[in-house]
Design a protein around this nucleic acid. Structure first.
Length: 306
DNA sequence: ACCAAGGCCGCCCGAGGAAT
DNA sequence: ATTCCTCGGGCGGCCTTGGT
């Protein structure tokens, strides 16, 4: 393919500084005439390529062309490499060679300056297998079947046409069209169990991917509540990790006050309870009453069982 | 200065494959 | 069948280098 050869010529010139048309012709198994035409095309495309005549001559790039004249800024080059490292982290295809080539192209050092790992602590071999099955079904447009436990713990068997995998808020989610609900749905990957890749192919083009994002559960605040909370300094590390800096105020006694708008639902109650004795909810007061009810019920359950 | 050798360059023509 | 594109080959010319 011509475009591939053009890219490789640039890559070779970056690597070797100078090479004759004859050498390139032998490498790509084309005539020297074709190589000269390629040089013309690269030149017309804005690549600062030039030729030296006579003995010891050959084809070269201007010195430091990538550093000084690349069409991509240093920041853009880093973004491309970060993107590839993320793809590598998903183990989707072999991108090592592409990363290596682009690092040479961008004149970046060969050391690993960034590492991305999407697996969560303690993720098992089974989880990785599940993830690989999802990738396969998604890229091959094959319907999947699995048991899904929702936020409230109830289990349903789902038949889904998988459309996209998303890493968001420290978790993987599957976007897809649920054939049980006949609608687009999000599924948290770690709540998917007994995943089976069926033998039913689906037509990806019949789905409208634009309909998906607005329904992402974490984006939906249909029952907003303004919370004012004070956390003890014992869990300072967790607060700075889970809340944005601008909603946190450090108090004189070392405790942290957090003012934030969240969606009031069962998940929120569970989340607040997870802070145990390290949280004091200042406003609104009725949340304290709800939490007392829930904790009382929990306590009664434990006492009954003991 | 002159010459030979190495390498690039422009033009022309034709073959082969893909697209229409 | 025709058109278009890519590529190869041939030829002559120009430029640079290095030896004499």
């Amino acid at each position: 393919m011509q475009s591939d050869r053009l890219f490789q010529i640039v890559y070779i010139l970056l690597d070797k500084n100078q090479v004759t048309a004859k050498e390139l012709a032998e490498k790509f198994e084309v005539s020297t005439r074709t190589i000269y035409r390629d040089v013309d095309k690269l030149s017309m495309a804005g690549i600062p390529i030039y030729t030296n005549k006579g003995k010891g001559g050959g084809i070269s790039l201007l010195d430091h062309f990538i550093m000084d004249k690349s069409i991509l800024s240093n920041e853009e080059q880093n973004k491309i490499l970060i993107g590839l490292e993320m793809i590598k982290a998903t183990e989707y295809g072999d991108v090592d060679q592409a990363i290596s080539k682009l690092k040479t192209l961008f004149n970046k050092s060969d050391e690993s300056w960034i590492e991305v790992d999407f697996s969560y602590w303690g993720s098992s071999k089974l989880e990785k297998e599940k993830f690989n099955k999802l990738k396969y079904a998604l890229t091959s447009c094959i319907s999947i079947k699995f048991d899904y436990r929702n936020l409230y713990g109830s289990m349903t068997v789902r038949m889904v046409d998988p459309l996209k995998l998303i890493f968001k808020q420290k978790s993987w989610y599957l976007e897809g069209y649920c054939l049980l609900k006949n609608d687009y749905r999000f599924f948290k990957v770690n709540r998917i169990n007994n995943l089976i890749v069926t033998d039913t192919l689906f037509n990806r083009s019949k789905y409208d991917l634009n309909k998906l994002n607005p329904t992402f559960p974490s984006n939906k605040i249909d029952n907003p509540i303004h919370l004012k909370m004070v956390f003890t300094s014992n869990i300072k590390h967790r607060i700075f990790e889970e809340f944005a800096d601008h909603v946190i105020t450090e108090l004189s006694d070392g405790n942290l006050e957090v003012n934030i708008v969240l969606n009031e639902d069962e998940w929120l109650y569970s989340y607040l309870i997870s802070f145990g004795e390290e949280i004091n909810i200042i406003e609104p007061d009725y949340i304290n009453k709800i939490l007392v009810q829930k904790l009382t019920k929990t306590l009664e359950r434990y006492l009954d069982n003991s």
